[in-house]
Amino acid sequence: MIASIAAEGQATRPAPFGHALVALAKERPEIVGMTADLSKYTDLHVFANAFPDRFYQMGMAEQLLMSAAAGIAREGFTPFVTTYAVFASRRAYDFICMAIAEEALDVKIVCALPGLTTGYGPSHQATEDLAIFRALPNMTVIDPCDALDIEQAVPQIADHKGPVYMRLLRGNVPAVLDRYDYKFELGKAKLVRDGADVLFVSTGLMTMRTLEAAEELAKDNISAGVLHVPTLKPLDVETILREAGKPGRLVVTAENHTIVGGLGEAVAGILMRARAMPSGFHQIALPDAFLDAGALPTLHDRYGLSTRAVVEAVKARL
């Protein structure tokens, strides 16, 4: 069973990654799909059904998966490799580092269950993956918000020369950004909504939550803006400085990741080095701890990722 992050009645699109990859592969014969026994759970089964002769099932052997992808990339192909984020960041990290990143090979690593998107507990919750891959030289790091973000990111990461790590929302993925005339651009942060009192600087599914929180805050005459940062590396320093450096606003970073080494610390570092720290700064992130197992709505409330928790955190600091 795939737990959904969509709210009841929220518009969704099925398997946006799988369908976007199929559409691209029709025009790009060098694209292949590879996985470690997880095609069904990373939406790569859509690609496997469309291009069975370009799909490689490597079994439960993530290190082998990454090494084989490196070899295929050396032969001129563009492998899209899928697994769970915990397996890529913990189990296969050294193989990604030595076989792919050091050689700057054209391998796209797309991983499901990022952060707190499963209730299975620490064995499957990749709460530190952004910190791990942001620290890896040559690696581009993407954390999309919704179905539109994923669909538009796929062809751009395929065009990008070098390795990419992209977090994946799978199954029926919410469609949120369509209503904001949003377009994904690799390496660019986008001001999705402006506001005078609060600026959320968010990434991944937390952009979904901060947009919802902004609407709730507006009911109390609190004007909140949302700067979506889908590319964690390289960061769009210019846009972050321009928006977060504006005076008179509380700046709140929000991420589905541990408070250590992710978006919040990266933004704080940018502002500190530019001597542009706002008068109010707060991080919304997961704690530096192994998290509980349970139902996702309960866990998101417990660890501060729910819309209600975001609203309460902002009100407590205004």
Rank of each mutant, 00 (worst) to 15 (best):
E185A: 15
A313K: 12
A104V: 09
V141N: 09
E128M: 09
A147I: 10
I109C: 04
E185Y: 13
I240T: 06
M208S: 06
F80W: 08
G225A: 08
L177G: 12
E265A: 13
V226F: 09
R74F: 05
R317C: 11
E312Q: 15
Q283M: 11
D129E: 14
E30F: 03
E8D: 14
L64C: 10
M98C: 08
I284C: 07
I96D: 07
A254E: 00
A313P: 01
V201M: 02
G225S: 12
T127W: 02
V173L: 07
P163K: 08
L205C: 01
S306A: 14
K26M: 13
V107S: 05
P234C: 13
M1T: 10
Y165C: 02
A101W: 09
D292Q: 08
A61N: 12
D292R: 06
L177I: 10
Y303V: 10
T12F: 05
L116R: 05
A7Q: 15
V260P: 00
R193C: 02
L44A: 05
M208K: 04
G71Q: 02
E62P: 14
L235I: 15
K219P: 00
L21F: 07
H282G: 03
R167L: 03
A244R: 00
A88S: 15
L205K: 01
I109G: 04
K40W: 12
K190N: 12
G294T: 05
V267L: 01
A36T: 05
L148T: 14
A189E: 02
P297V: 12
H19C: 10
T253G: 06
C97Y: 15
A48M: 06
T35R: 06
I150V: 15
E216K: 14
R193N: 01
I157C: 06
M34W: 09
F95C: 11
A266W: 04
R302T: 15
Q152P: 07
S39R: 15
F51R: 11
V198T: 03
F95S: 12
R91N: 07
A266C: 03
D301L: 12
V81K: 07
Q63A: 09
P234H: 11
S89P: 06
D149Y: 13
R302A: 13
T12I: 09
I270T: 00
V110K: 06
S279T: 11
L271V: 02
S223G: 11
L217F: 02
V311G: 10
T307I: 15
F77Q: 07
P230S: 13
I259E: 14
L227I: 08
K108M: 02
Y93T: 13
S202Q: 00
R317I: 11
L136C: 09
C145I: 08
H45F: 11
G262M: 05
V237D: 15
L286T: 06
K219T: 05
G225N: 13
A274Q: 02
F184K: 05
L235E: 14
L169T: 02
I270M: 04
P137Y: 02
L105R: 14
D197L: 04
I132M: 10
D37H: 05
A214V: 00
G33Y: 03
R209P: 00
T298I: 14
A99P: 01
D236E: 08
G264F: 02
A316N: 10
L21D: 07
I100E: 01
M206Q: 12
E312T: 13
Y84A: 06
K233C: 12
L24S: 11
